Amino acid sequence: MTSPASQKQLQVQLVTISSNNEGQRIDNFLITQLKGVPKSMIYRILRKGEVRVNKKRVKPEYKVNVGDEVRIPPVRVAEKVETFLSPKLDKIAMLEHTIIYEDDCILAINKPSGIAVHGGSGLSFGVIEGLRVLRPEAKFLELVHRIDRETSGILLIAKKRSALRALHEQLRLKQMTKDYLALVKGDWSSACKVVQAPLLKNVLKSGERIVRVDQEGKPSETRFKVEARFGFATLIKASPITGRTHQIRVHTQYAGHPIAFDDRYGDKSFDAALIGTKLNRLFLHAAHVQFTHPKTEQIMQLQAPLDPILQHCLAALRQN
């Protein structure tokens, strides 16, 4: 059975660009319009001139303007691509219950641990793909930022291109603050309030990303505050000033206090010491974010509660 989205892709579409997509590259616009279509096919139809803007051929880097008429040719998608979301319907439905804020500009969820923010690297499903299924009427849904697959907590999604631009500008100017909670090995010193260590990202042949402190890396800064002490472990608040890949995880390791159950930068003996708490996931949670609303210009403060696994872990540590 062919889905409505697939039927739409099997006929010529004429789409008029609205203000939501103004300034977007034509290749990125097509990716959002032709969900599930391989990028290689999108660049092929652009190269062959099958995509027209105002009846003219364009290059992938062309940025669309309000009022542009885009001709999108029929595109046939393999059946396995059309149906890749069907086994994930339960997870997609679950995302509805993770929404902690939504208006006509932005949407925020308390992302569960174990779900990637987007598909790729062998993953066909991520948060953004799931939300697009949940909100088929939404013409624009894009990630404002990213958090690691095993990290839980607040994730912001823009529902308008203007909102995305405004929030990206706040990130660039360091006007958005994000606070994470992490359980780390050992007794964190109250004197250690900031770690400034340059980070260099390496991609292994497997596609796995490994980050290490390296003088040739990018400048990186994280601020820390002790929240609770448990003798062999400390609950800390980590506030990244820069936004590098795996930044908090590598900076805590560099400080000698790796995060509990971190499969890349952690300490197996520390994980074993936590067995009585029933912790079985990375203890890193995006708990709080503050930013200026892109439309109302009000200061927004969003909180995301810890999931039951993290709550149980802390309760067990306090009891002991």
Rank of each mutant, 00 (worst) to 15 (best):
V81A: 13
G122W: 04
Q170E: 14
G126F: 06
L302G: 09
D263C: 07
A191E: 12
R132N: 08
G231Q: 12
I236E: 02
F84I: 09
Q215G: 15
T242M: 03
N65M: 14
V213L: 06
C105F: 10
V51M: 01
D307R: 10
E61F: 09
Q13A: 13
Q253W: 11
F29T: 09
L200C: 06
D271L: 11
I99S: 03
P73N: 08
Q7Y: 11
F29M: 05
K268R: 14
G120T: 09
K205R: 15
N21C: 07
L156C: 08
R223I: 04
G36D: 10
T222G: 05
R44V: 11
T83I: 04
P308A: 13
K205V: 00
V117L: 09
K178T: 10
L156R: 03
K35T: 07
G153C: 07
K80A: 12
M176G: 02
V53I: 05
D27T: 05
L167C: 01
L310K: 11
T277S: 05
Q33L: 06
E61V: 08
D90S: 10
D307C: 13
Y180R: 07
A138N: 02
G153D: 00
A138P: 02
Q298W: 04
F230C: 06
R149A: 11
K295H: 14
L164E: 07
H246N: 11
I17C: 01
Q13M: 08
A116H: 05
S220G: 00
A93D: 13
R57L: 02
Q303Y: 12
G217R: 14
K35H: 07
G130Y: 03
I147V: 15
A108E: 01
V66K: 13
R57N: 08
G120V: 03
K178M: 08
P198N: 04
P198L: 03
N54V: 12
L314M: 12
A260S: 08
R146G: 01
Q253E: 12
L181C: 09
K39A: 03
Q9A: 15
N65L: 09
G67P: 04
L204K: 10
T222M: 12
T2Q: 10
T252F: 02
T2E: 15
E137I: 04
T83C: 08
K55I: 00
T296L: 03
H288G: 00
L204F: 10
S19L: 05
T222C: 10
I45A: 01
V226S: 03
S121A: 13
N320F: 13
Q303P: 00
T2P: 07
S189Y: 01
V226L: 03
P219W: 14
K111V: 00
Q9F: 15
G23Y: 04
S190T: 14
R57M: 06
I72E: 00
L310E: 14
S40E: 12
Q301A: 15
L235C: 03
S189R: 05
K39N: 07
E22A: 14
D27Q: 09
K111A: 00
L164N: 01
G114C: 13
G23A: 08
C105M: 15
H145F: 09
P87V: 00
N65R: 05
E50P: 00
N21W: 15
E169I: 04
V58C: 07
R161G: 05
L204H: 08
L181S: 01
E227A: 10
V66D: 00
P305M: 06
R165M: 10
R249K: 09
G231F: 08
K35L: 14
A228R: 03
S6R: 11
A138K: 01
K59N: 12
R264Q: 15
D103F: 11
